[in-house]
Each structure stands twice: as C-alpha cells, then as structure tokens.
C-alpha cells in the first residue's frame, strides 16, 4: 500500500471513501486529511454537529496514514487512540485533521493529531495514539 499514490491509499479504504475523505498532504510521517460536512454524519440533530465517531474515524485514518508514510513503514494497525473533544465543529464546515508520527520503535509508532474546521486557530479535537509498526528490513 505504501507504494501507491496518496489518494489511492485513501481510495483503497472503503470506509474512508464512505465518509468522503480527501488526502491533502502526506510524507515523512505526517499526513493531512479532510472530510466535508454531511447530514448523514450528524450526531445531534438539534445542533447539526458531526458525531464524535466520524471525527474519530477521520483522526484514526489520518494517524494511520502518517504512520504508513514514515520511512520504511510496511503495515500498521491502531493499538489505542484517545480523542479529546475541545469544541463542537461548526455545522456545514469541512473538518481537516493533521497527524504526526513523532516517534517509532522497532514495533510501535506514536502519533498525535489535531482536527479543526474553517477556524484553524481553534482545534475541534486532538488525539494521541499508539500504532503497530512493521518496517522493511534494511537492505
């Protein structure tokens, strides 16, 4: 999968496609992925705010993409992921997640991520997680 183009990486994940995710940047352990507002993703109809679960899915995908873009990465899976919800995302606005794989060991990758809507100064959510990490053998 690491050999594919970035958007192909997203297109290969059916659920990322179902949520309409768009890969905007990737490389060197960092990724940026966005998701448009959609009435089907709403959690509380009284407010029109996107469900936390959809934001989690965006953060998880973006974090996994960041790990896969780390030099030498072969495969990854989420071990655990914590999301802190700072504020409700504004209905109608696109949500953008940025993730950074800031440390890897032989078997584990550590990732942190933030998500914001069109107000990029005030995060909607932050996340931190541990992922499995398998790397290519050194030649």
């Amino acid at each position: 999968m690491a050999e594919n183009t970035p958007q192909e990486f997203i297109n290969a994940l059916p659920f990322a496609g179902a949520l309409g995710m768009r890969l905007e940047q990737i490389g060197d352990g960092r990724a940026q992925i966005s998701m448009g507002w959609d009435p089907r993703f709403v959690g509380d109809p009284a407010t029109g705010v996107i469900h936390g679960g959809a934001v989690s899915a965006l953060m998880d995908t973006c974090s996994g993409a960041a790990v896969m873009s780390y030099p030498g990465a072969l495969t990854t899976a989420t071990i655990d992921l914590r999301i802190d919800y700072m504020r409700a995302a504004t209905p109608g606005q696109r949500i953008t997640a940025r993730a950074e794989c800031y440390h890897v060991t032989r078997r584990v990758a550590f990732v942190r991520a933030t998500a914001h809507d069109e107000d990029s100064d005030n995060p909607v959510a932050t996340a931190s997680g541990a992922f499995t990490f398998d790397r290519r053998e050194a030649p």
Binding site: L13, F15, A16, A57, M59, D60
Partner: peptide, 14 residues
C-alpha cells in the same frame, strides 16, 4: 462500506 483494510479484510478502526 465498513471495511478499512480490504486485504485482510478488517473493519475500519474508525
């Protein structure tokens, strides 16, 4: 549509 990794296949973590 709930699949994340189509190779395994496995449900998406999200």
């Amino acid at each position: 549509k709930l699949i994340g990794n189509p190779v395994l296949p496995a449900l998406h973590g999200g």
